[in-house]
Design a protein around this nucleic acid. Structure first.
Lengths: 184, 184
DNA sequence: TAGATGTTTCAGAAAAAACTGAAACGACTG
DNA sequence: CAGTCGTTTCAGTTTTTTCTGAAACATCTA
């Protein structure tokens, strides 16, 4: 039912998932869908992975809440079939987007909130540190948003331009203006 | 002993850690060190966080294995004191580096290994998919390596150039001869 | 060497997370 | 309506992970 090759891939992503705070079954299901040319239904996955029907159901729900799988239907078939997007880049974008929404955004909110607290003297250092962290996160997410706005083709072109960008960075430092610390 | 502000920050990172496959105590310890102007020793952390001495010891060991904390010593004091780097950028670099080492590299190895398997016909699609994934990961890590090679100051300059880069990406698509091979 | 101080280890306890089977549910179909 | 097909829910079980206390270890000091 499942070639060694696919089996191994699926097990690998099950294991990897754990290190990313994703549970094993969820990782395995995603991997199975990723490798499958045809959409799969819940019972297919039960057969492929040997886990319970309810586990598959919960895991698929989880994946849907992350927007990582798409629902497909076949004419004359009531079952739900699932796929991953064909475009790997779309997968990456979704992954980052969701992760950002669930982890970065709440953290930024918390940091801003702590920054604004009227600070007693003993917290001066801590607050400075928090500000530093917030600014860094904002710089990185701002950058990500810019890159994410590019079409994939252009983004790839840019990623392939590492050396040229280094040059650009070099000149950017030399160019005099823009000494201000914050802009927003 | 611990102001509300710091308390909240520490709890937040304890929770966040869980979502990243980092256990709560480890997250809390790191957060506490991050906010502390002075280096802290294990017993300080026991007092601050209210966890067992051995838990602190294990967690610090974990953090050390990730190169996320530095050891300091005081003259005439046998205890180990710990700090986080002052430079947030260094922290980010280390974090990415270690994560790459533990998660990306083994995955790339596995993908390459699966790609090379003499493939039966039924695995043709799966292998193509795997190749696609490997290539994307290589592109991203290659890019990261380039960026990581920059001095922080230049890197920041580059990150602040989002709009300009978009322009560059635009022209980049027009100039070079197409790397065909596109699918989808 | 004995004692003081500090760190690490580890078997088992406690807590958390993942998983299951059975039952409830919902939506069509004849 | 009763029956079929498929999905979802959830209480309880299993598995995994985290955490603890006690003992072992290590290093320095008198």
């Amino acid at each position: 039912m499942l070639s060694d090759l696919r089996q191994e891939f699926i097990l690998h992503f099950g294991e990897m998932g754990s290190r990313w705070g994703i549970n094993r079954t969820v990782g395995q299901i995603y991997a199975a869908l990723f490798l499958s040319e045809e959409p799969l239904c819940a019972d297919d996955l039960v057969g492929l992975l040997g886990v319970s029907r309810s586990n598959v159901s919960m895991s698929l729900k989880e994946l849907q809440s992350w927007n990582l799988v798409h629902l497909k239907h076949r004419p004359g078939d009531r079952r739900d079939f699932f796929t991953t997007p064909d475009d790997m880049w779309q997968i990456v974008r979704t992954l980052v987007e969701e992760r950002k929404k669930r982890e970065i955004d709440p953290t930024l909110t918390k940091l801003r909130q702590l920054e604004m607290r009227p600070g007693s003297a003993e917290d001066a250092y801590a607050q400075a540190r928090i500000t530093e962290m917030r600014e860094l996160i904002e710089l990185l997410t701002g950058w990500y948003d810019q890159m994410n706005a590019l079409e994939t083709e252009r983004l790839v072109a840019l990623l392939n331009m590492g050396a040229k960008l280094q040059k650009l960075a070099q000149s950017a430092r030399i160019l005099p203006k823009r000494t201000n610390k914050t802009e927003s």
